[in-house]
Amino acid sequence: MTISDEQMIHGLTAGDQQRRHYEKELYLQYQYLINEGSRKYHLTHDDSFSAYSDAIVSVINNIIRSSFDHRSSIKTYLIQIFSNKCIDLVRKKTTNKEKVHHGTAEPELLSYLPDKAKGIVEKMVDQQKILAVKQQLETMGEKCREILLLFEDGYTDKEIAEQLQYNSAAVAKTTRLRCLEKIKEKMKHLFTNHE
């Protein structure tokens, strides 16, 4: 049975288990696009699958953060994002710049800063550092990883506290910031040695 856009948005913004359920439903409802992506853009199944997964993540984030403007249906919106991601992949492959440009999309948070501040901070952020921090994140304790990823997934501290059974949102937040602090301590050398 197809889930309507209204139901989908309601489910995705309901939090916790409902959200998980609707994320899966959204993925399954349009997964036929993976084959279409392969066919239309001559991508491997794996590449098309990656583009589709990334597109689903974007759609979910935009719905949760209320940046989905409802001007089109979820399906149209998803197809647009998915097509763009497929085209990006095709471009990377055909221009043979994959090695140089892999994953070089500008970090979203940089765009929050005004030009001058952005120019200064931007010079200190690069893909290698992101990958090094990611590697550090993978080796952290399960608790830290879980709490950080839940936050990144758009859950509030209150929801995180409920899911991970902390006493309050404040405790969850303190724990989360402590985990970020650990990463900062381990990775700060990356930001001081070469500057």
């Binding site: 901070v121 992101i130 921090v133 990823l149 990775m187």
Partner: peptide
Amino acid sequence: ARDVALYITTREAMKLSLAEQKREEWR
């Protein structure tokens, strides 16, 4: 500015990890 850069880098790394995790779940 370095602290801000590190924060952005960490959030970006978390985003990549999360995307990988979701990709695996959906696969």
